[in-house]
């Protein structure tokens, strides 16, 4: 009987074999049903939505929604400094890692602000708001001109100064 079962497994057609090997209890889901959760932004700009915002718009939003934790002018408070460019060796291996002195990709800003901020009420910001906050923080850190709007085309092109100072720790694991 065991032999028969084994033979059946070996000689069944490929489709049936796949069905027999895994339970297949996942339900196909359409892109439109996935939309609200499909928020990951990749360094090449994949996933950035339509919309646009400027540093001036972002400054106002920052005062309203962010300054309570990140401090006036984003200089830091109970949460991280967001505008500021201290030396990465100022305090040796414990130096403050900021957007200006450390982050390797500009797209991380959009991905993280949209998914996680403001901390007490995440995902209340519109995509335009998030672009505006990206522009405010990048301009404040002198990484873009004050008047350059951020959008799906401009944001991924922003060159972060520290991008080439990373060493991949375990290249064979990637």
């Amino acid at each position: 009987m065991l032999l028969a079962a084994l033979l059946a497994l070996v000689y069944s057609p490929p489709a049936a074999r796949a069905a027999a090997n895994t339970p297949g209890l996942g339900k196909p889901i359409s892109p439109s049903d996935l939309k609200a959760w499909d928020i990951t932004v990749l360094p090449d700009g994949t996933g950035l939505p339509p919309g646009s915002g400027t540093a001036a718009q972002g400054a106002k939003l920052f005062d309203d929604k962010c300054a309570l934790c990140h401090g006036q002018g984003a200089k830091g408070g109970i949460a991280n400094m967001l505008i500021g460019n201290p030396s990465l060796t100022a305090h040796g291996i414990a130096s403050n890692k900021t957007i200006a002195n450390f982050w390797g990709q500009s797209t991380t800003l959009f991905d993280y602000i949209r998914r996680a901020m403001p901390w007490p009420a995440p995902r209340i910001l519109s995509d335009d708001d998030v672009y505006a906050l990206c522009a405010y923080l990048l301009a404040g850190n002198k990484l873009i001109p004050e008047d350059e709007p951020m959008n799906a085309q401009t944001l991924p092109k922003v060159k972060m100064p520290n991008r080439d100072n990373f060493i991949i720790k375990f290249p064979d694991r990637i």
Binding site: N165, I167, K169, F170, R173, I174
Partner: peptide, 9 residues
Amino acid sequence: GKAYRFYFI
């Protein structure tokens, strides 16, 4: 001042 990236393990 350099940093490790993908220090998974």
